[in-house]
């Protein structure tokens, strides 16, 4: 309680405050869904515009989207391998786009101008629910990838060089989603807090370099999340000899 109120009152920033939606007896963080819908809507509009008239000689938006596609393919191919990267490319690409759009949207759009009854709008990835959801999806994906590609032989991976590795590999299944979710959550939340505190203390000029740093961090976090997800899937489908 004390810690919560401390966080809440720190520098007059609202931390850990949520806009609650009550549906039946389940409660949701409304601000997370609001921002994610706005950002994903913008992303989908952008993509629909870019893929509306596909040509063999790409122009304008199509060029950008093809560059993005190529980038995601290279990412998936280097981490997952030539054989199955096609199956996982949409998932890896969606993770990358979702995290990237959320991070940048949270950093670039002045959400604070929109007043909510409780909590405030911000990057959806600054909410622990979102990052844990993404991390658990990655965990499910690599289990599914391993089992569907290798069947029960997937579990050879746990004793791969020697059976001594078994406890560590089991532990890894827990540390992977934990580190994935907390890395993203911590980075984005910390960036928002730093910018918020600086804007509160020195509203002119000084926050700008930190904001640029925040944009950089946001892009890097999206890349890291997608790369690690692809790496875990690649690790699960890799054939040991």
């Amino acid at each position: 309680m004390f810690f919560n109120s401390l966080l809440t009152n720190f520098a007059a920033l609202e931390v850990g405050q949520h806009l609650y939606w009550q549906i039946g007896n389940i409660r949701l963080h409304g601000q997370v869904f609001l921002t994610s819908w706005i950002l994903l809507g913008a992303l989908l509009v952008f993509i629909s515009l870019g893929t509306k008239k596909m040509e063999n000689d790409p122009k304008g938006l199509q060029n950008l989207l093809e560059f993005l596609w190529d980038y995601i393919r290279d990412l998936a191919r280097t981490q997952i391998g030539e054989k199955v990267y096609r199956d996982w490319m949409p998932f890896i690409g969606t993770l990358f786009l979702f995290v990237f759009v959320s991070n940048w949207g949270g950093a670039l759009i002045p959400w604070r101008l929109i007043k909510l009854p409780s909590g405030e709008l911000g990057a959806p990835t600054a909410d622990i629910n979102t990052t844990i959801a993404l991390a658990l999806l990655v965990s499910l994906s690599y289990f599914y990838a391993g089992l569907s590609n290798k069947g029960w032989r997937y579990f050879e991976y746990y004793v791969h060089p020697t059976p001594i590795m078994l406890p560590f590999k089991i532990l890894e299944d827990f540390t992977k989603p934990l580190s994935l979710s907390f890395r993203l959550f911590g980075n984005i939340l910390a960036d928002e807090l730093v910018v918020g505190v600086l804007v509160f203390l020195v509203p002119l000029i000084l926050p700008i370099p930190v904001m640029f740093l925040g944009l950089f961090t946001s892009a890097i976090q999206a890349l890291i999340f997608a790369t690690l997800a692809a790496y875990y899937i690649g690790e699960a489908v890799e054939e040991h000899h």
Binding site: N4, L7, T8, V15, G16, Q17, H18, I26, R27, L28, H29, V32, F33, S36, L40, L44, I47, S48, T51, L65, W69, I72, M89, P90, F91, G93, T94, L95, L97, F98, P124, D127, I128, N129, T130, I132, A133, L134, L136, L137, L189
Partner: peptide, 29 residues
């Protein structure tokens, strides 16, 4: 409230991301 308030946002967000994967697959990839 609180930073680590985990509730039904999590599974719904997961569903949303899965849906987004299918939408992006047919619209983009």
């Amino acid at each position: 409230g609180g930073l680590f308030d985990i509730n039904a946002t999590l599974p719904l967000m997961a569903l949303q991301v899965v849906a987004l994967t299918y939408i992006l697959n047919s619209l983009f990839f």
